[in-house]
Write a protein that binds this DNA or RNA. Structure first.
Length: 463
RNA sequence: UCCUCGAUAGCUCAACGGUAGAGCAUCCGGCUGUUAACCGGAGGGUUGCUGGUUCGAAUCCAGCUCGGGGAGCCA
């Protein structure tokens, strides 16, 4: 007999009704009476559980009746229409094999757990409804990202995880070394002698693959990266993790407008894909996590994203009736409260903020004709905040070198990056999308620690 | 790193200066269609850690550890 997966039973129930089938899965809950009982079985393929009915005619009825949540079973029986109102069909068991019993101190109960508690048992939490839904959506969103870019002739580039450059100074780096900690070699000046380290130079985990991605962009025209990224910032917020996944497309012969079009198309594509392919999970989020989720996502699909320049945003904030804790002044970076106002109150939809003052942005962003601002864009979304940061890159060698000089960046560290401008350089643009922030936006989950399997945050690398 | 709130049974919480409790989970018993099933019973605690105040501390005070929320940094 072939083993059926529960997803298949729900998607094509006509094909299986009345047939004898076998399923493998884990017990979510058991309800038992004197001579019969019900098991909610989940095999991980589908959000909804399969109801198994068992009766005392089974040889091992007594044993089955004592099953606890978490036990692994193989059930053979007939799929029949269910008299109960809450499920269309159920599996009438003819044989139940206990594949893996579950100890009585299993920490997952049927009632609601706090997300804080579930983080302490991150090895078991994917067995809960919420996390089953989050990680299926995460998987689908990752696939949708690849699908989106592949369908548009992008090449997927694997940029290095270990890097010698501090990229764009995007954040503190984790050091990668094989030097011992007790007797680190020192040079004549008393500094750590990295020439004796594994790579012969100071290295760390990547904080961005962008600079490397730009090199492949100048060969393939359209590329993207999708990989782990590391920031050693001592951040304690629901939106930051030390290890996270980032998507960084880079497009040649393109300006900031092209960049924003790409970002908007991508966001809509992924939202649409997840809504189409995880309807049960999305309904669950809408019911138990964020009651306005589906309406909001539908609205995003239908409307155009907002666009304001940084300068316009400053005017909007200055004229707002809202009182801000931090002053609104041209030249200062937008505070979280300002971003929230723009996205959640003023626009009530995703909004691109563009053309920031050059002094608050990275060296590689293209200088605008006003000589004061750069062709940068941040995408702010209600509830999550900044989800994308991007820019048109400075392709003019003179401008780039001048900016590097102003910031004290050395030619030697960026010689290959400067070469791109020397050898057939084109205008080009790109952005970074925080994958976990996208998942938060798609699911309504409020904490980044609950959308990544084993979160790494300050003072926490358990599992 | 700063501000703020919190830590009591396996989980979710109550008790707020005077003998530490409930629901769920677990174990035992009952129940012929359940749906976070239901009904009855039992076991389960160094009240995060260290010190202090007090006749007496889960409760008040100090420090520490861990966690939540906010800020900064950013994706």
């Amino acid at each position: 007999m072939q083993t059926a997966v529960i997803r298949e039973l729900f998607k094509q129930s006509d094909k299986h009704l009345g047939k004898s089938i076998r399923v493998h899965g884990w017990v979510r809950t058991v309800r038992v009476s004197k001579s019969f009982g019900f098991i909610e079985l989940n095999d991980g393929t589908f959000f909804t559980n399969l109801q198994v009915v068992f009766e005392e005619s089974l040889d091992n009825f007594a044993e089955i009746a004592r099953l606890v949540t978490g036990s692994a079973l193989t059930v053979t029986g007939t799929l029949v229409e269910s008299p109960g109102a809450k499920q269309p069909f159920e599996l009438k068991a003819e044989d139940i094999v206990i594949v893996g019993s579950c100890a009585p101190d299993y920490p997952l109960q049927k009632k609601r757990h706090t997300f804080e508690f579930l983080r302490t048992i991150a090895h078991l939490r994917p067995r809960t409804n919420t996390f089953a839904a989050v990680f299926r959506v995460r998987s689908l969103a990752a696939y949708a990202i690849h699908k989106f870019f592949q369908e548009r002739n992008f090449v997927y580039v694997h940029t290095p995880v270990i890097t010698g450059s501090d990229a764009e100074g995007a954040g503190e780096m984790f050091r990668v070394t094989t030097l011992g900690f007790d007797r680190t070699p020192r040079n004549e000046a008393g500094q750590v002698d990295f020439t004796r380290d594994f790579f012969g130079r100071e290295t760390g985990l990547t904080v961005s693959g962008q600079l490397e991605a730009e090199t492949y962009c100048q060969a393939f025209g359209r590329v993207y990266t999708f990989g782990p990224t590391f920031r050693a910032e001592n951040s304690h917020t629901p939106r930051h993790a030390a290890e996270f996944w980032m998507i960084e497309p880079e497009i040649a012969f393109a300006d900031l407008q092209d960049d924003m079009h790409l970002a908007e198309d991508m966001m809509k594509y992924v939202i649409g894909y997840v809504l189409d392919n995880a309807p049960e999970e999305m309904d669950f989020f809408n019911k138990f996590v964020d009651k306005s989720l589906l309406a909001r996502l539908a609205n995003v699909l239908q409307s155009d994203f907002g666009h304001v320049t940084y300068t316009e945003a400053i005017d909007i904030l200055k004229n707002a009736s809202e009182k801000f804790e931090y002053p609104v002044e041209w030249g200062a970076d937008l505070q979280t409260e300002h971003e929230r106002y723009l996205a959640e109150k003023h626009m009530q939809k995703p909004v691109f903020v563009t053309d920031y003052p050059k002094q608050i942005k990275a060296f590689y962003m293209r200088l605008n004709d006003d000589q004061k601002t750069v062709a940068a864009m941040d995408l702010l979304v209600p509830g999550v905040g900044e989800i994308i940061g991007g820019s048109q890159r400075e392709e003019r060698p003179a401008y780039l070198e001048q900016r590097m000089a102003e910031l004290g960046l050395s030619h030697e560290d960026y010689w290959w990056y400067l070469d791109l401008r020397k050898y057939g350089g084109t205008k080009h643009a790109g952005y970074g999308l925080g994958f976990e922030r996208l998942i938060m936006y798609l699911t309504g989950m409020g904490n980044i620690r609950d959308v990544i399997s084993f979160p790494r945050t300050p003072k926490n690398a358990e599992f």
